[in-house]
Amino acid sequence: MFPFTYTKAADTRAAVAAGQRGGRFIAGGTTLVDLMRETVERPDTVVDISGLPLGEITTTRSGGVRIGALVRMSDAAADRRVRNTFPVISQALELSASAQLRNMATIGGNIMQRTRCTYFRDVSAACNKRAPGSGCAALEGFNRSHAILGGSSQCVATHPSDVAVAFAALEASVHLLGPDGERGVPFTEFLLRPGNTPEREHALRPGELITAVEIPAHPRPLRSGYLKVRDRQSYEFALTSAAVALHLGGGVVRAAKVAAGGVGTVPWKLTAVEQRLLGERPSDRLWTAAAAVAADDAEPLAHNEFKVELLKRTVERQLRVVGGTR
């Protein structure tokens, strides 16, 4: 670990100021400390924001839910409003990491967590994300866990978060506080695809601090759930995952919110699947037909070809689990 200065932010304004000076925010520390130990991250200054008043979950006037950036994963998952309104969020959280990690890690930190690409995490390997211009060892290397969607010739690393997949599906927005005040960014625009700048992972401007994630109101009743497919039953990142939320009315799908994880360089909103579902009567055939387009833009690599089919089946399964029939 490289030496660094530790400071504790007294309030959000001070945190933003420290961030502007290059300070790296730390809350639960479950990602950053690991990466610092591996010398992947070498911040000069670490700004502890865990004392800031960003730990509330509130219901918005329109009927959405606002989860403060410092709410622990375990607390968000257990929250009655989250659990009742958006089970997909609770499920995604509870299928993440381990109980110990969920008790430490925060919602803001979760969406900011960095890829599990082993070449990124190994400082002796080429990685454009870690060391721009050094190349991408994963493209021609072992890439079973890598993205089939949203990659570039510079980077094919997946975004590892589960709850971010639920947020993307539900069209959440990220609330930010910066030197110029507050702003909101749609979740699907917050995390960036690698393109030619894989080191740029998010839309944060210098000093900006995530204050909350807001999930807008959706038509009710909204059924939702999260399916995570992985080699072992717990404590592993997703091979594929699907966040599905459906509003049925009059015997047809009135609203469909679907995103996939484990397959994209960012949580992957499956707009084509959603479109295919709207106005249709739930049936196993519909789920299959809608899921069939889930991987249309996929560009698989040497070791993750199987994810193309697995993604379709994952989406199909979760559409059925949430939407019923069979």
Binding site: S145, R232, Q233, S234, Y235, E236, F237
Partner: peptide, 12 residues
């Protein structure tokens, strides 16, 4: 590492 080399966990 033990995140990527998988050994069974209790759930398995």
């Amino acid at each position: 590492n033990l995140a990527d080399y998988l050994v069974p966990v209790n759930a398995d």
